[in-house]
Simulated assay, not measured.
Amino acid sequence: MTRYILRRLIAMPFLVLGIVTLAFLLTTVTKGDPLTAIVSDRQMNDPAAVAAAKARWGLDRSLPERYVIYVGNLLTGDMGTSFITRRPVAQDVFFRLPATMELVLAAMLVGSTIGITLGVLAAYFRNTAIDHAARFFALFGSSIPVFWLGLALLYVFSVKWGVLPGPGRLDPRATPPASITGFMTIDTLLAGNVKLFIDALWHLILPAFVLGWAVAGTISRLVRANMLEVLDREFILTARAKGAGELRVVIGHALRNTLVPTLTVIGYSFAYLLTGAVLTETIFSWPGMGSYAVEAARGLDFPAIIGVTIVGGVVFLLTNLITDIAYVIANPRVRLG
Rank of each mutant, 00 (worst) to 15 (best):
Leu121Ser: 00
Trp148Asp: 11
Val20Asn: 03
Gly80Trp: 02
Thr175His: 00
Pro47Arg: 09
Gly115Ala: 09
Leu6Arg: 10
Phe137Val: 14
Ser62Tyr: 07
Arg224Gly: 07
Tyr70Glu: 05
Thr85His: 01
Pro145Val: 11
Pro47Tyr: 11
Thr280His: 06
Gly337Met: 13
Ile130Pro: 03
Ala174Trp: 03
Pro13Glu: 01
Gln91His: 11
Arg173Ser: 12
Val159Trp: 13
Arg240Thr: 10
Leu274Gly: 06
Ala241Val: 10
Gly80Gln: 01
Arg221Thr: 08
Leu196His: 00
Leu26Ala: 11
Ile186Pro: 03
Tyr70Thr: 09
Arg56Met: 10
Val146Glu: 15
Ala277Trp: 07
Ala208Thr: 04
Val159Glu: 12
Arg8Cys: 01
Ser143Trp: 09
Thr2Ser: 07
Thr319Glu: 03
Phe137His: 02
Thr188Ser: 12
Gly77Cys: 05
Ser285Ala: 14
Ala55Pro: 00
Gly337Lys: 15
Met1Ile: 06
Gly192Leu: 04
Leu204His: 02
Ala53Asn: 09
Lys31Thr: 14
Leu170Ala: 07
Ala191Ser: 14
Glu281Pro: 02
Trp57Val: 11
Thr185Ile: 15
Gly299Leu: 02
Val278Glu: 04
Arg56Pro: 05
Gly212Leu: 06
Tyr292Glu: 12
Gly166Val: 05
Leu151Asn: 03
Ile114Cys: 05
Gly243Val: 08
Leu6Glu: 01
Thr85Trp: 01
Met101Ile: 14
Phe125Asn: 13
Phe235Arg: 08
Tyr70Met: 11
Thr188Pro: 01
Phe157Gly: 02
Ala106Arg: 05
Ile322Cys: 13
Val260Met: 09
Thr30Ile: 14
Glu102Trp: 07
Leu97Arg: 07
Asn193Cys: 06
Phe147Pro: 02
Ile310Pro: 01
His253Gly: 10
Gly150Gln: 03
Leu318Glu: 04
Lys242Pro: 03
Thr319Lys: 01
Leu97Asp: 07
Ala304Gly: 08
Thr275Val: 13
Ala49Glu: 14
Val334Gln: 12
Arg7Thr: 03
Thr262Val: 13
Thr188Ile: 00
Leu211Tyr: 08
Arg256Pro: 14
Val50Phe: 08
Leu211Gln: 08
Arg8His: 05
Gly192Met: 08
Gly245Asp: 11
Ile5Gln: 03
Glu234Lys: 13
Glu281Ala: 04
Thr76Tyr: 10
Ala134Thr: 11
Arg233Glu: 15
Gly288His: 03
Leu121Arg: 01
Gly162Glu: 11
Leu151Tyr: 12
Asp171Gln: 00
Gly337Thr: 14
Ile306Met: 15
Val156Lys: 12
Arg3Pro: 03
Leu317Cys: 08
Leu317Phe: 07
Trp161His: 14
Ser220Ile: 04
Leu189Ile: 10
Ile219Gln: 02
Asp187Gly: 02
Glu281Ser: 06
Asn73Arg: 14
Gly166Ile: 01
Asp131Ser: 07
Leu255Ile: 13
Ala244Trp: 10
Ser291Gln: 12
Thr282Met: 11
Ala304Tyr: 00
Gln43Trp: 04
Pro176His: 00
Leu22Met: 15
Leu109Lys: 00
Thr309Ser: 15
Arg56Gln: 15
Leu153Asp: 05
Trp161Asp: 13
Thr264Arg: 04
Ala48Leu: 11
Ser179Gly: 00
Tyr124Phe: 15
Ala330Cys: 12
Ala244Met: 14
Asn193Gly: 05
Leu75Lys: 08
Met227Asp: 09
Asn45Ile: 06
Asn226Pro: 00
Ala49Asn: 12
Tyr67Trp: 13
Pro165Asn: 04
Val311Pro: 07
